[in-house]
Design a protein around this nucleic acid. Structure first.
Lengths: 330, 330
DNA sequence: CTGAAAGCGCTTACAG
DNA sequence: CTGAAAGCGCTTACAG
């Protein structure tokens, strides 16, 4: 069958010998339909393979029960986990989640948001800090918009939810100090807001520890070479905090290639606590963010807006440190 | 604004002082509209923040230009990469991709497919082998359905595209034999069709090499202990092919914990060539599948169906081996 | 308990 | 070049 025509409520009505209104009522389980009619209609629908047309329903009802989730990068487990949280909360609240993929392209992310709006979704969660603020502001006039991530500037009318990146970095620093490390370097491979906040948390946490040497290394360009230079330096640090797990593992690889003992000659802490952290050897200490909770709260924020909340809400979620072999001396 | 009303074509018409038909024509760039009118309408639309309602348009046009992609597990980079391929092809062919997440739950995957159908998508790509065959068969009456993955049984009316798992496993075996390994074990953590096909490829490739000892180890239950037992065995294999990268890395971890030299005392080959393979030390040899191509072909298959193809198409894609340190002796 | 009518926001012939 | 009318597949009052 090359035509793919879908049966409509009218086909079912004809098949069952009733009016289309009655088909609609029966199929949606309205109580005022006789059992015999209901059965006849159900059979007709099954015979034809009838399936309600959500597009038509949405048009008349003025709502789709759809939530659009726009993510920068699906390959990043952090994003998929947040989306999992959104989905679980959506299930409970009676929404369906449609996911759209920005592929690290700001233009594309913006397009995805606009497309979601055209699809008439009841709310939008943007799991990204790359979207155009002006587009989000405009979008929020027509549907609740929640941003999961750290925007360069705050957008009025839009809710946000971020992880406490400064606090997470501070917790990592505290742990390293407790272990007795006295020369710490923050290694960053990104200039995105989250990485910057982590770096600031690192610097601040060490501001009053004058006995400790604190430095920052930018390895965003030419990562492997930059890391090599850092490790070959005579004044090599004794402990490193990286802005994410992948960067931490790259540091670990370079250290192992150089025969350095981890953590005794070099301690390493990552950020994000991805699956990587427990798979590499030695296992990697990392800052964990409650991604599922973050997604859930984002969905709840959308629901609150739909229920009438008018003031903006900005939530900050506390991360926690998971200590593993790469930084534990005893 | 707690109401989120979206302006309609009628609001724009009123604002511009024309009929709604004219607004529709002007906004879609019809040539038969005077420049002055077109400008007035565009300004009115901008003032109101008007955005076309795709739901209404889809209803009248009978097509949505939407492709539904249903994936088992977004956290799996293999799936996100396939989706990336679908998206790139969709961009070229003028479709938008809506992603839905099955979260490893067969019931949920089936629901996602049905929901996509209700949304009137023009085609469905199921990146999963967990969906209910009967539901897919029904779905294919109303929209083209392509399965990326290995279904237990073939579904008539549905196109499929799979990677040649037997061939990939055979290529890995051939490489290990060339390197001179003489005792090979296939380590599997799954009984899904793809894992079984890889195992069959392994067994077949060794069927005529009587001098080589070939075995299979199921580590799906109690993975770490099972792997430990395998490695502590006096008759430990000299090389291992795992059914995926994560399992391969677990084997690697256990081997390193036991002080085994990789690859000299134990060679390891993974499958899927995920980001993991180049991040672990030693780097992991792995069978790579052209995920982007797979996604692209899936999208093209949908388009072919929409253009009238009626016979089923079943495509098998050749994987390739990426040799790294974990299996290279010299 | 059932049917006829209006309308959701658009597009598409059809007039003028 | 512009407007009035019909209709996409539904739901929702309103009659009977």
């Amino acid at each position: 069958m090359p035509t793919f025509r879908r049966p409509t409520i009218l086909d079912v009505a004809r098949e069952a010998g009733v009016s289309k209104s009655l088909v609609s009522l029966a199929l949606r389980g309205d109580s005022g339909v006789s059992d015999s009619t209901r059965l006849r209609i159900a059979e007709a629908a099954a015979t034809l393979g009838y399936r309600s047309n959500a597009v038509a329903r949405a048009l008349v009802q003025g709502r789709t029960s759809l939530i659009g989730a726009v993510a920068t990068e699906l390959t990043n487990p952090y994003h998929s986990e947040v989306i999992g949280g959104i989905e679980r909360a959506a299930d409970e609240l009676g929404f369906d989640v449609l996911i759209s993929h920005g592929r690290r392209d700001p233009t594309r992310i913006t397009q995805r948001v606009e497309r979601m709006l055209e699809l008439n979704v009841d709310g939008i969660v943007v799991v990204s800090s790359w979207a155009d603020p002006e587009v989000l502001r405009q979008a929020s006039r027509h549907a609740p918009v929640v941003i999961v991530g750290r925007m360069p500037d705050q957008v009025s009318g839009v809710d946000t939810i971020v992880s406490d990146d400064r606090g997470g970095a501070a917790a990592a620093v505290e742990h390293l100090l407790e272990q007795g490390f006295e020369s710490l370097t923050f290694v960053s491979s990104s200039q995105r807001p989250a990485a910057i906040a982590r770096q600031e948390g690192f610097v601040q946490a060490l501001a009053h520890h004058h006995a400790v040497r604190a430095r920052v290394a930018d390895v965003s360009a030419d990562t492997v070479t930059s890391i090599g230079r850092l490790l070959d330096d005579a004044a090599r640090p004794s402990a490193i905090l990286a802005n994410n797990d992948v960067t931490a593992v790259r540091v670990m690889d370079s250290a192992l290639d150089r025969g350095l003992a981890i953590p005794h000659q070099l301690a390493i802490v990552g950020y994000d606590d991805t699956v990587l952290a427990s798979l590499v050897r030695p296992t990697l200490t990392s800052v964990d963010q409650p991604n599922d909770d973050i997604g859930r709260i984002a969905m709840e924020m959308v629901e609150e807006r739909l229920s009438g909340r008018v003031h903006d809400r900005h939530e900050i979620i506390a991360p926690s440190l998971v200590v593993r072999a790469s930084s534990r001396l005893r």
